[in-house]
Design a protein around this nucleic acid. Structure first.
Lengths: 127, 127
DNA sequence: GTCGATGCAAAAACTTTGCATATTC
DNA sequence: GAATATGCAAAGTTTTTGCATCGAC
């Protein structure tokens, strides 16, 4: 199965690529609608699933009923969730010592870290 | 608002408490139905939300459309998701050096780590 | 007996699918 | 022109809410 390059797919891919952190499906739709106003949510979900299967993006589970999507290929990084503004930020500089937690006989492929707290912007505005 | 002690709430709480790792709502229902066969899913969700508000349990986001719930008070620990059997295991022994990733001006409250891989049972059975 | 909790069913929210039309190659 | 992609609407899922009844205190 080959795929066609459409303005919808381009707008969706670029929205995800240019975002500073992972986005929710409805956020992806809103951003992509700046390029394609009539873009439907079904196309967003279909495109998300295609991009997931092709490995171009990945899901970032943040909380109950809150999954966001980000491009693969930003290098190894982790995430910060601000509990005031609900933004997820990318963080770099993982020290990587995880294997001491691994139970005997378990095999690790990957790991993800989510830090919870308050971001600099929210700290400033609220003290 | 005070709360009543009911066999439903007891069964749900005990299902979560006695599980070896975090559970999905439908898994909680199935387990609790061993004590209360007519237990409805609405009661499960209502109880999950109550227990979350009171801080007795917490959500563990695992993947898109996969949140599980576990008791607080198991001490600091993290999770392992087996991609063969889809079980989530608790892991202890976090080394805890996260702050080197924290951007300037950000404040960290907590962190969670999810390791992906293959568990010992699946490794044995599949090689 | 009062107030909170439950079960069921309806509603809301989120995600996927079917299908006629439109777009890409 | 053939094959894929889209938008819309309908169907599936998951989670929440309304309400009459039941159960705890």
């Amino acid at each position: 199965m080959s795929t066609h390059q459409t303005k919808q797919r381009k707008a969706i891919t670029e929205a995800i690529l240019h975002a500073p952190g992972p986005l929710r499906p409805n956020e992806i739709q809103s951003l992509a609608q700046e390029q394609v106003p009539r873009l439907g949510i079904a196309t967003v979900y279909r495109t998300i699933n295609l991009l997931m299967e092709s490995g171009e993006i990945q899901a970032v589970p943040i909380a109950a009923n809150d999954v966001r999507y980000e491009p693969t290929g930003r290098g190894h990084h982790h995430h910060f969730l601000c509990h005031r503004c609900n933004t997820v930020y990318d963080m770099h500089g993982c020290s990587g010592h995880m294997s001491n937690m691994l139970p005997d006989g378990f095999e690790m492929d990957d790991h993800e870290i989510l830090i919870h707290g308050k971001c600099a912007t929210c700290k400033e505005s609220e003290g």
